[in-house]
Design a protein around this nucleic acid. Structure first.
Length: 744
DNA sequence: TTTGACGACATTTTT
DNA sequence: TGTCGTCAAA
């Protein structure tokens, strides 16, 4: 117990209470940065060390793999042993584990494939085609969204059928039901099915559910505010024997309602679990007083919340800096020079993050960072396994593994190009559908028909190759198999040829990715293990190794912390997102505000907020953007507001003298290049400046008719320095740069 | 059947 | 902005 007390040493009273309450139902409402992960870890540790439970009797569920891994490694470090038999994982990975064992109970084989969104969409499209349901006004994405929602909310096919009144609803019900049948036929399931299938196993098979209920003496749930009704039901089943459950969450950080995690679900805790007790963790250990003050002040605008008040004993810290810019480019320039500043004062780049509402907004920063040679990483952009080339390789492995994997075959049947086009595929599809056989078998039938020439030879070829791969699948190891398939199929050749083309940068990446994939393969004992990993684990874990600036969405920043946080794109309409307000009204707005709260509380030392006046993209060009209302909702005394420094300081380009002042040893390759190219850039800038002055010389006058590339013709209302307010004939009134104007 | 050009279109957040 | 789908030509 000594050891234990040592570990408890720096916990506060509430945290210790939370750790020591082991039996019954406990909901811990833990504010951001209040050490909830520590509490969870210590709880597991406490169960183990006080011999309350064996490792495999503890079920710890999280929503992200990151969180699951953190729990595992930190507990392993404390106990000094690595435990591989335990049940720590995401809802989905644990469900997959259960489902693999009992798949036959829901009509799947144990080597079922977990499909992703692309496959889901493809499947829905093909269902609509064969059912003659038009995708004109409701597209496949819409149906997918509905189906996902049914699964999140634990609504069965039957219920959907019963409720369907108008034709659209009946179509939806039909698609849903066929979709489910198709998944079973193809031996696949989607993410939602992992949970749903478990539920039907629990429901149907008493023996299985009893065994699991007996096994899990203690259940721990992280990020409980993210729970959806299906997952809640899932927990209820597993809880109901020992009845020990502890959920940790923060209603103010509920930002996944579109995944069925509505904030009201947290209330089910008191409904579904017996004698619930609720504890609060309110002391924040992460951030400065000012940051906490801002975050609390902001979140107080929400009506729909538990009244939890976070506070901090840390130092007061510096004010939040607010900046406005005209263009995203300027935003990127300003932030990058701020980062350079931080860097020279020895801040590790790992402690700096730029958070945005929309993943796509990394672009201007990427460009800038590449330009000046600041290393950065994008977290949660395109997932590794979502890349085209990786999915292609996986499809090859899948079809070798299982001939009846129609989705995989369809994906690679003409990649690389074999002259098996849409038309041929359609014919084969028709055959398979009519005969109710797999695509693979359909191909064989097609070969016996009289039609087609070249395509047939190729199909025949492919089929015999697939047969061949399948024969050796158990004879050689999976790495050799993968190499063999890549060679044999001509896919490697395709990549290599592509990389030789003029624009080789991207294809070189692809080759790299495939190689990385093969490397990853080595870490798994067999193909199945790897395929499971790939479909359930989005990120690769070694992303934190190097010193880099992190760029990510506010959503994916949840659970992370950084010394300095830049929050960009705080423009009304973008954040809070117009769409979410339109879709969900007040509750949508509150969710956006919670997102702002999450974003603010990521910072330990200092927050920088910025907004951009002019359109971020041409297509978002509706209007002149104004600063987010959330900026107004922050307490004035904690803010330091700057006008667009761009206009005070007309030198936009990177300042070379700053560069030379910096320690030369620190200069990265990118910067070196920059210095080398400095003259060139400088010339360009000079030319650019000349352009501007040329325009200024020929200066426009108020009332002039002008032309703008993006917005068309218009009349100048007002000229201000280097910008002008224009009344455009077709696109309304906008502020634009003079340099982009032409005489009519 | 493939390729290229063109225009339409959509753009939140993810296990 | 870039991706996707459609269309016509090769």
């Amino acid at each position: 117990m000594n050891n234990l007390d040592k570990n408890f040493g720096d916990l506060n009273k509430q945290q210790i209470d939370a750790v020591k309450k082991t039996s019954g139902s406990l909901l811990i409402l833990a504010g951001a940065g209040s050490g909830k992960t520590r509490v969870l870890i210590l709880k597991i540790y406490y169960f183990l060390i006080s011999k309350l439970a064996l490792p495999n009797q503890i079920l710890a569920v999280t929503f992200t793999n990151k969180a699951a891994n953190e729990l595992k490694t930190r507990v392993s470090n404390m106990t000094g042993k690595i435990i591989d038999s335990w049940w720590v994982g995401t809802f989905h990975s644990i469900s997959a584990r259960i489902l693999r064992k009992h798949s036959e109970l829901v009509g799947l084989k144990n080597n079922f494939v977990i499909i992703d969104k692309d496959d889901q969409i493809k499947l829905i499209k093909s269902i609509c085609e064969s059912e003659k349901i038009s995708l004109e006004d409701k597209n496949a994405k819409y149906y997918l969204k509905c189906i996902d929602r049914f699964k999140n909310d634990y609504i069965s096919e039957e219920e959907v059928f019963e409720k369907a009144k108008i034709k659209d609803e009946r179509d939806l019900a039909k698609i849903f039901s066929i979709y489910q049948n198709e998944l079973i036929r193809l031996n696949c399931c989607d993410f939602g099915d992992l949970i749903i299938h478990c539920l039907s196993i629990f429901k149907k098979n008493n023996k299985v559910v009893k065994q699991l209920q007996n096994q899990f003496k203690y259940i721990l749930v992280d990020e409980y505010q993210d729970i959806n009704p299906s997952q809640q039901e899932w927990l209820k089943y597993l809880y109901s024997h020992h009845k020990n459950i502890c959920c940790v969450g923060d209603d103010d950080q509920s930002i996944y309602s579109w995944r069925g995690a509505e904030i009201k679900n947290i209330l089910n805790f008191e409904k579904d679990f017996e004698n619930p007790s609720i504890m609060f963790l309110e002391q924040n250990y992460r951030s400065t007083k000012r940051i906490i003050n801002c975050a609390s002040h902001l979140i107080n605008f929400n009506k729909n919340r538990y009244n939890k008040k976070i506070w901090s004993q840390n130092s007061e810290g510096s004010k939040i800096e607010i900046r406005g810019f005209w263009e995203t480019k300027e935003e990127a320039i300003s932030i990058s020079s701020k980062i350079e500043e931080l860097k020279t004062s020895n801040t590790p780049l790992n402690e700096i993050a730029i958070l945005m509402r929309v993943a796509a907004h990394t672009r201007s920063f990427e460009e800038r960072f590449l330009n000046i040679g600041l290393p950065y990483r994008i977290i949660g952009g395109i997932k590794f396994y979502e890349r085209k080339e990786i999915k292609d390789v996986i499809a090859y492995l899948r079809i070798a593994n299982n001939h009846n994997d129609d989705l995989a075959l369809e994906r690679i049947i003409n990649v690389p190009k074999r002259g098996i086009g849409k038309l041929t595929l359609k014919k084969i599809n028709l055959i398979s559908r009519n005969k109710k056989i797999s695509l693979f078998e359909g191909c064989k039938i097609y070969l016996q028909s009289d039609e087609g020439g070249k395509a047939k030879i190729e199909i025949n070829n492919l089929i015999s190759k697939i047969h061949k791969w399948n024969k050796v699948i158990n004879k050689i190891d999976h790495i050799d198999l993968c190499e063999l398939i890549l060679e044999d199929s001509g896919y490697m050749e395709l990549l290599i040829n592509e990389s030789k083309l003029k624009d080789h940068i991207e294809s070189y990446d692809r080759l790299d990715n495939v190689n990385e994939f093969m490397n990853g393969l080595k870490e798994f004992e067999n193909l199945e293990g790897f395929l499971e990993h790939v479909s359930l684990v989005a990120e690769n874990d070694n992303i934190y190794k190097n010193e880099k600036i992190s760029l990510m969405t506010m959503h994916s920043a949840k659970g992370l912390e950084f010394k300095y946080v830049f929050l960009i794109g705080w423009e009304e309409g973008l954040f809070p997102s117009k769409r979410s307000i339109e879709e969900k009204g007040q509750s949508g707005l509150e969710e956006e505000r919670r997102l702002a709260y999450v974003a603010l509380t990521r910072a330990k030392e200092k927050v920088f907020i910025s907004f951009v006046n002019q359109n971020r993209y041409s297509y978002a060009s509706h209007d002149f953007n104004s600063p987010s209302r959330f900026i107004n909702e922050l307490p004035k005394e904690d803010l330091e507001i700057f006008n667009s420094e761009i206009f005070e300081n007309d030198e936009y380009s990177f300042n070379i003298s700053q560069l030379e002042e910096a320690n030369t040893a620190e200069i990265s390759p990118g910067k070196k290049r920059l210095i080398e190219n400095y003259n060139k850039i400088n010339e360009q800038n000079l030319a650019h400046d000349r352009d501007i002055s040329a325009i200024n010389q020929s200066s426009f006058n108020e009332g002039d008719r002008i032309f703008h590339k993006k917005f068309g013709y218009g009349r100048i209302l007002e000229i201000e320095n280097i910008t002008a307010l224009i009344n455009f004939d077709k696109s309304g009134t906008k502020m634009v740069y003079l340099k982009y104007l032409f005489r009519e």
